[in-house]
């Protein structure tokens, strides 16, 4: 029993991040989201289209980090230009994989960070993602908010994507995609939900801690290319 505890306890002693938080437009929502994320055990969040000012940053709990993310969408021809536009902004770039053409256009651009829940993923797209080191996103929120047929489809998609991610050694990211503070789930719950489509606890923990940290590191101004860094 003690041996089992020592195996599982350090697993969840990490810093967890949720990289896709939707903030509503009203004032004060950021503080609510931050306190909810902090209570659920997250060390940082990346909010989509974040418009923060100095006072917001001062109110953050100690050790909590706030990042900015952008969801890039549109027609495949415009998607490349959209991604290039955010090239040097330091925002985390996320594309939702609804359409195969959109997925392909997004994966061919090197600057993309996360491809969220691609619906028709295959070996060619996996190879592209692997070459351009783009992480594969798994949306836990879709399991929480859907029921019946829709949830079966979501779980089926995630199970297939997990197979490709393991085969092509793609980085994986888990997100609850919260639209309100009530949508957060703690990392242990997220790992349990990820277990429903076959993800191992170690993979789930990495998808919420080390992989987001790696993406954040790549977005820092000191980072140039893998292996090259300004000291």
């Amino acid at each position: 029993m003690k041996a089992l505890l020592s195996q599982t306890m350090p697993l969840f002693n990490a810093k967890f991040f949720d990289l896709m938080v939707h903030l509503p437009d009203d004032k004060g929502s950021l503080a609510q989201f931050v306190s909810a994320a902090d209570e659920f055990g997250y060390s940082g969040i990346a909010a989509l289209d974040l418009k923060y000012n100095g006072t917001d940053m001062d109110q953050l709990p100690s050790g909590f980090s706030l990042f900015s993310a952008v969801e890039v969408s549109g027609k495949p021809s415009r998607l490349r230009d959209e991604i290039k536009k955010y090239k040097d902004t330091g925002d985390i770039l996320i594309t939702r994989g609804r359409d195969e053409e959109v997925i392909r256009a997004a994966l061919e651009t090197q600057r993309l960070d996360i491809l969220l829940q691609p619906v028709k993923f295959n070996n060619v797209l996996s190879k592209l993602a692997s070459d351009n080191s783009i992480a594969l996103g798994f949306n836990i929120g879709s399991i929480i908010h859907t029921r019946g047929d829709d949830r079966i489809m979501e779980l089926r998609t995630m199970r297939t994507n997990l197979k490709y991610a393991r085969k092509y050694e793609l980085q994986m990211v888990l997100t609850c995609e919260p639209y309100s503070p009530y949508d957060f789930r703690s990392p242990r719950e997220a790992a349990a939900l990820a277990g429903l489509f076959g993800m191992r606890p170690k993979e789930a923990v990495d998808a919420m801690s080390s992989v987001p940290l790696d993406i954040i590191r790549k977005k820092s101004p000191e980072y140039i290319q893998e292996g090259i860094e300004i000291i």
């Binding site: 789930r185 242990r188 719950e189 349990a192 939900l193």
Partner: peptide, 23 residues
């Protein structure tokens, strides 16, 4: 326990009001 956690995490609405359960 893992399955129970997952089922608890899936509860998101009760009587139309938003809910979240934290283990």
């Amino acid at each position: 326990t893992s399955e129970t956690r997952a089922a608890l995490a899936c509860i998101n609405k009760v009587r139309g009001g938003r809910v979240s359960i934290m283990v």
